[in-house]
Every structure is written in C-alpha cells, then in structure tokens.
C-alpha cells in the first residue's frame, strides 16, 4: 500500500493532467484560429467578388455598353450563395464566439460589412436587369427579440422553396456598426424582427402567410 510519496503522486498527476488539458485546449484554440482565418479569407474573397462586380458595372458604363444581364444575374446568385455559406459557418462558431470574444467580434463585423455590400450590389443588379430574384434584409437582435426564432424559421422555409430566387441578408442589429445604424435609422427600425422585403419595410414579425403574399406581389413564383 502506498503511504509515502503521495505528495509526489499529486504533483506528477498535476503536471501530466495540465499537459493533457493545455495541449487539448491549445489544439482547440489553434483550430479555432484556423477556422477564423478560413472565414476571414472567405470574407475577403466575397469582398473582392463584390468589388469585381462593381468594377464591371463602372467599366461598362464608361464604355457606354449595355450590361450582360445573364452574367450579372448568375454573379448575384453566386454572391448570395457565398454570403449564406459564410453566415452558416459563422453560426457554427458560437462556442469560439463565447471563448475568443474579441477575434469573433471583429470577424462578425467584417462579415456584416461585406454582407451589406453584397446586398447593395445585388440590389443594383436587380435594378439594371430584369430578374425575379427577391431580396430580404432581415434585422434581428440576440438581446431583445421575441419572434426572431420564428422569423428565421419563416425565412428559412421560403429559402428552401425559392432557393436562388430568394436572397436573405441577416443583420445582427446589436453589432456596433455605423452602416447598420444608418440602415436602421433610414428605415426607422427600432423593433426586431424587422424586414426589408424587396425594398418594402416591415417593422414587425412577418408571418408565413404575409411573407408569401409579399413575395408573390413581387414575382409570380410557382408557389404563388
């Protein structure tokens, strides 16, 4: 029976456990850091694609040539898909969001900026080309929002049905960003959820039925 050396036993255990624990933690944070850098790269890519689209508009304008709508619509589709994929991945990083708060906040702010840029570009494409692509700017809050869960569910439902014909841009109103503040103030949004569906503002929860009529007012989708 071990009677002597128990202090040594506790100490050796402490050293080995700490090593295992901190190696595990280090691996977790390294992977977290890697994920953040992958996301940041994706954000940068999206930003570049948006800039390229805008450049394309400008060049055509200078050259006085008409815009190739087929190309622009497929570009809008691509930009929307990229943005939604980014949003999904960002959501999956909730744990890191709580553990690596600062890095995550920066990443989220970058994402919000690029998302708004994306929305502006797609709206531009919609203005210039005839397309039945609906856009929804969805303002939500994690702090003070009773029906955000339901609103997200309704939007997700129509996204599944309309696929690339519906582009949703979810904006976290709690993010401290001038551009978000500017948008909420322009559209007099103070309650959440609030939606901007194809340019029309709705400052309350939009039910499944109402959303269907707003979307169908815009275009005669097969579901209408």
């Amino acid at each position: 029976m071990e009677r002597r050396g128990d202090v040594e036993l506790f100490l050796v255990t402490g050293v080995i456990s700490s090593m295992i624990f901190f190696v595990g933690l280090f691996m977790g944070f390294s992977i977290g850091g890697q994920k953040m850098s992958i996301l940041q790269n994706s954000i940068n890519n999206l930003e570049q694609n948006i800039q390229a689209a805008n450049l394309h508009f400008n060049v055509l304008e200078i050259m006085n040539e008409s815009v190739s709508c087929d190309f622009m619509i497929s570009l809008a589709d691509e930009l929307g898909t990229e943005a939604s994929e980014l949003g999904r991945r960002l959501e999956q990083m909730e744990i890191e969001g709580r553990m690596m708060t600062e890095d995550y906040t920066v990443l989220k702010r970058n994402y919000m900026v690029v998302l708004i840029n994306d929305w502006v570009t797609i709206e531009e494409i919609k203005m210039r080309c005839e397309t039945n692509m609906s856009t929804v700017l969805y303002f939500y809050s994690n702090v003070n929002c009773l029906n955000c869960e339901e609103q997200a569910s309704v939007l997700n439902y129509y996204k599944k049905i309309l696929d690339s014909n519906l582009m949703i841009f979810s904006l976290d109103a709690d993010t401290d960003l001038t551009v978000i503040n500017a948008l909420t103030s322009t559209y007099s949004i103070s309650e959440y959820p609030s939606l901007l569906v194809n340019g029309e503002v709705h400052r309350k929860y939009v039910s499944k039925t109402n959303m269907s009529s707003y979307l169908c007012d815009f275009s005669n989708y097969s579901m209408c």
Binding site: G24, L25, G28
Partner: peptide, 16 residues
Amino acid sequence: FDLLFAINPLTILALL
C-alpha cells in the same frame, strides 16, 4: 456538416 467547424476547444476536451 463541416467537421472542421464542428471542432472547438470544448469538443477536443470532451474527446480527450
């Protein structure tokens, strides 16, 4: 499902 994005410090510790 994205395996890399499912891994975080807590899942690594749980795995250990």
